[in-house]
Design a protein around this nucleic acid. Structure first.
Lengths: 210, 210
DNA sequence: CCAACAATCACACGTTCATGGGATTTATCT
DNA sequence: AGATAAATCCCATGAACGTGTGATTGTTGG
């Protein structure tokens, strides 16, 4: 039994979706709202497996809603619904951690398949949207950095480490003693929560710190 | 009328696909081959709209075939077929310019839809594959992959290093002695042209080796 | 069959790193 | 003025790493 929560501002569509979900075996509707201003607590109370989220909603739009969900550290699966296969929204939604992205014109039977799909870890997409995602991959868009609150000097040191410098080389490069380098690095390790040079390098690169 | 060209080494599947295509209205089979050693001239002669390309083929594998197609500056649409939703292949295929990526277990009726889809500029993907593509976008994968010709074992070791393992931990994880780990790492360093763990980690991440 | 390579293990030496203690100076915020 | 944080430096110890020089086994391709 897959528990589904719906956010869709258009009343007719919301009810239509609701009926589709609750009327299908294997699916259960746990709620349907016209806006996602209170996603957090609704998630908490209703504990859905999958959220259907309309992108174009008043007050808090769907992508904001998605961000709130991910910020709440929920691992619920989120399927975005939209009328247009609009480039910017697709990009934003993917970055924000959407699990799938469907056009509203998706036929009901397909929609149910897709919901089941997303439950199993799939990422159903309307193919026109997949096209855009492929282009993103090919042309290399991205962002999403974390902030570890490193001081300027700590950054200097870390950058050099990432470029393969030893402590001694860092010291020479920055005209400071090797003990100062040690000191900075110790602090960096604490802030990044690592305890080796290579872990620090990996974390810096993975989170695109520079 | 959509003209389809098939590359599939398994004879049975090739014939099955051929019958499906030629027996469906709106579709026309222009050819079916067991290898794509001569894609260029076959494309030139047969002028298909869509190519179905198996990834796992002897001689010239599907991705190589795809590259040859793109190198020939053809704008034919290419749908990759594969048994596994294997990460590396998806990435390579996307980079090489595939228009879609399907699992072979896709039911025939769907396959036809997908072919029509790709004709209209869509990028049909099995959803398990779409998941991987989304991850690529999120983690910003892109161009510039180099090949350092690491052995499988060397890859294993390097992956663990990237994840912050010490030599000792790698040895424990792979059930080999720490000296063996050293040995592998020494070879990795030579191939990557580095001489420290953190440089190796940096290079692996920067060149998106995995 | 032989060459080449991959994977495994061993030992030894010196270097680099991680971490634990400190300390001083300067700038900023309250 | 006192607190806080950043940047600098010092010392000492043990663990981790880098490199050299081996050796054995199994697989693969010519």
């Amino acid at each position: 039994m897959i528990k589904v929560l719906i956010y869709e501002d258009n009343q007719q569509l919301r009810e239509g979706l609701g009926i589709l979900i609750s009327g299908s075996i294997g699916f259960q509707l746990t709620g349907a709202f016209g806006n996602c201003a209170e996603v957090e607590q609704q998630l908490d109370e209703l504990k859905p497996d999958v959220v259907l989220m309309d992108i174009d909603m008043p007050m808090v739009n769907g992508i904001e809603g998605l961000r709130k969900i991910r910020a709440a550290d929920s691992d619920v699966r989120v399927l975005m619904l939209t009328v247009f296969d609009d480039n910017e929204n697709v990009f934003e939604a993917v970055k924000a951690g959407a699990n799938g992205y469907l056009l509203k014109k998706t036929p009901p039977a397909r929609l149910l398949e897709y919901i089941a799909d997303v439950m199993e870890g799939g990422a159903p997409m309307t193919s026109s949207i997949a096209t855009q995602v492929l282009n993103m991959v090919k042309s290399g868009n991205n962002a999403g950095t974390q902030d570890f609150d490193l001081s300027a000097r700590e950054m200097d040191v870390l950058k050099l480490l990432v470029n393969g410098y030893s402590y001694k080389m860092v010291a020479a490069e920055l005209f400071i003693s090797i003990d100062t380098v040690r000191s900075h690095i110790k602090n960096v390790y604490e802030k990044l929560q690592v305890n080796s040079k290579s872990e620090a390098v990996a974390k810096a690169l993975k989170t695109r710190l520079f």
